[in-house]
Amino acid sequence: MTQKLDTLQETASQTAGPFVHIGMVPTYAGLGGIYEEEIGTSTFSDGAKGDVIEITGTIIDGAGFVMRDGMFEAWQADANGIYPGQDGVDPNVSGWARVCADPESGEWTLRTIKPGSSVNRDGKEQAPHIAIWVVARGINIGLQTRIYFDDEDNSGDPVLSRIEHKHRIDTLLAKKTEDGKYRFDIRLQGEGETVFFDM
C-alpha cells in the first residue's frame, strides 16, 4: 500500500452533438435575441493593429463529405504575438471567435488579424498561428489543431518541428490565394488527414 494521491480526474468529455449551436451560437441556431450580447462573434474590434486577413475553408469527414454542422473556436495572439490576458496586449483584440460552417455549402470564413509570433515560457518563439478547437456531432472530445501560414517562416517553430512525418506539416499551412486571403481545409480522417494535437 502507499499514500493516496489527492489529485482529481478531469470530468469526461461528451460530444457537442448536432444542436451545439443553440448553446454556443444561439443566433445561428435561430435563437437570436435570447442574450443581450452574444460572445465570440469576432477576434478583434475596430482599431486593432495589424493586417486584417480572411481564411476560408471546410471541415471534411473521412468519407470526403463536407460537413454542414461543424464548428470550431479560434484562439490567437495579437499582431505583436501577445495573447489577451498578457501584459501589453492590443486592447482591441479579444483573440477568440466561434466559426460555423455554412449550413448549405459547409464553407466557413474566419476574418481576423494576422497574429504575430509568440514566445513560450522557455523563451522559444512560435511562428504565427491560430489555435483551432473543432467540435461537432460524432466528435467525442474536441479536436485541437493549428492554422499556420504558408507565407511565413515556419522553420523554427517548436511545435511543427515535432511532426515526424514532415509531409503532414502541409496540412497545417493556410495557403495564400490572394492578398490578405487564405485557404485552409480541415480533414478529420483519411487522405490528407489534418494533424491533431494533445497539448
Binding site: A63, I139, R162, E193, V195, F197
Partner: peptide
C-alpha cells in the same frame, strides 16, 4: 468517419 486515424501528436502545452 469523424475520428482521426492517426494518433494525436502529444506535447507540453505552449503559451
Amino acid at each position: 468517419t469523424r475520428s482521426p486515424n492517426f494518433p494525436l501528436l502529444a506535447m507540453e502545452s505552449t503559451v
